[in-house]
């Protein structure tokens, strides 16, 4: 998802009676649905995994502004422009809520930023794809935010209090994101042949990468099992992917667009669709840093950070000067 492939260091999930008393008490609190708060004792692995997961999630929100930011100046109407601007601004806010949550675990904002900028920390694979036409703004809102919602709604119940609270705020705003995207798709799908063609082309390009957002199957992963025991992951990747497909296919039908998968078929027995797996070789290649836009994204983030240095310094100097004046006056 927004935090794909968060590797934990554990060797498997311990049973309650294999745990030291402190860890056992911690796990029992989680089992009982208690929220863990920043000053509570927690296992080092829980803290470490959460920093990675929340950090990756935050970075995804921030880098995720770039593919859509690409179209703000070229939105077809002033209203669409204002909407897109508000949507992208929300994503900046999501990044900030999440950085705040990560910071309560003892990592600093600057450390996280540094790890994003030098490539030690990742962000979601989806944001390494280009946005080639205006229809992509529709597809991104509809599919990418739609997939994000699938993952974020259950995370509102995650065991770590600050993370759960950030998710509540984020989910409130995501529904606007998905709807504005679907609204663009509706307009284009009911427009001229050329517009309809653009809408179909956007769906064709974003379908596979959207399915990849959930990450590869993790039914047999010890990492996922541990995260699920800690309730920092609420569903398996396949489970969420299936839910996403089941929900999205009828929406595509409504639009009169074709999901680009010839194996897509309703399966009465499982009460869901059968569908093709996305290209996992491509996914791993993108994660290795070979996405079509990876270099561009990293350059854009680094440039924004470097070009903003004088503003940050200036504001700090101003604050120091004001403080000094106040002290002198007292």
């Amino acid at each position: 998802m927004y935090a794909q492939m968060v590797k934990s260091t554990g060797t498997g999930v311990k049973a309650l009676d294999e745990m030291e008393p402190q860890e056992r008490a911690f796990q029992e609190r989680i089992n009982a649905g208690d929220k863990i708060e920043p000053k509570d004792w927690m296992p080092a692995g829980y803290r470490k995994n959460l920093i990675r997961q929340i950090g990756q999630h935050a970075h995804s929100e921030i880098v995720g502004q770039l593919p859509e930011g690409n179209w703000i100046t070229r939105a077809p109407t002033l209203e669409r422009k204002a909407i897109l601007l508000a949507k992208v601004q929300d994503e900046a806010g999501h990044g900030l809520y999440l950085y705040c949550a990560a910071e309560t675990l003892g990592v600093t904002r600057d450390e996280l930023t540094e790890m994003l900028l030098d490539g030690r920390m990742k962000y979601s694979s989806i944001f390494n794809y280009p946005t080639l036409t205006w229809a992509d703004m529709g597809a991104v809102g509809w599919l990418v935010d739609g997939a994000a919602i699938m993952n974020q709604v259950p995370l509102q119940r995650t065991s770590y209090g600050p993370y759960a609270r950030a998710m509540v705020r984020i989910c409130k705003e995501e529904s606007f994101h998905q709807r504005q995207g679907f609204d663009i798709m509706m307009t284009m799908a009911k427009g001229t042949d050329a517009q309809k063609h653009m809408a179909q082309d956007a769906l064709n390009r974003f379908w596979g990468p959207s399915l990849m957002m959930f990450g590869p199957s993790d039914e047999n992963s010890v990492h996922s099992a541990q995260s699920m025991a800690w309730k920092i992951k609420m569903n398996s990747n396949d489970e969420l992917r299936q839910k996403f497909v089941d929900q999205t296919v009828s929406q595509a039908e409504y639009l009169g667009l074709t999901v680009p998968d010839e194996n897509l078929k309703w399966n009465e027995k499982k009460g869901g669709y059968d569908f093709s797996q996305p290209d996992w070789d491509e996914f791993f290649d993108v994660l290795r840093g070979n996405g079509p836009e990876t270099t561009e994204r990293m350059e854009a983030r680094n440039k924004a950070w470097d070009d903003g240095a004088w503003v940050r310094d200036g504001m700090m100097a101003h604050a120091a000067k004001k403080k000094a004046m106040k002290v002198a006056a007292e």
């Binding site: 806010g93 900030l96 904002r109 950030a166 705020r169 604050a319 004001k322």
Partner: peptide
């Protein structure tokens, strides 16, 4: 509602406006 970083109180309120009351 949450926290944020800012150089001084004035900027903290401005940032809070953007982050928490859109």
């Amino acid at each position: 509602v949450g926290s944020l970083h800012a150089p001084d109180a004035e900027m903290a309120i401005k940032n809070a406006r953007d982050v928490y009351t859109r």
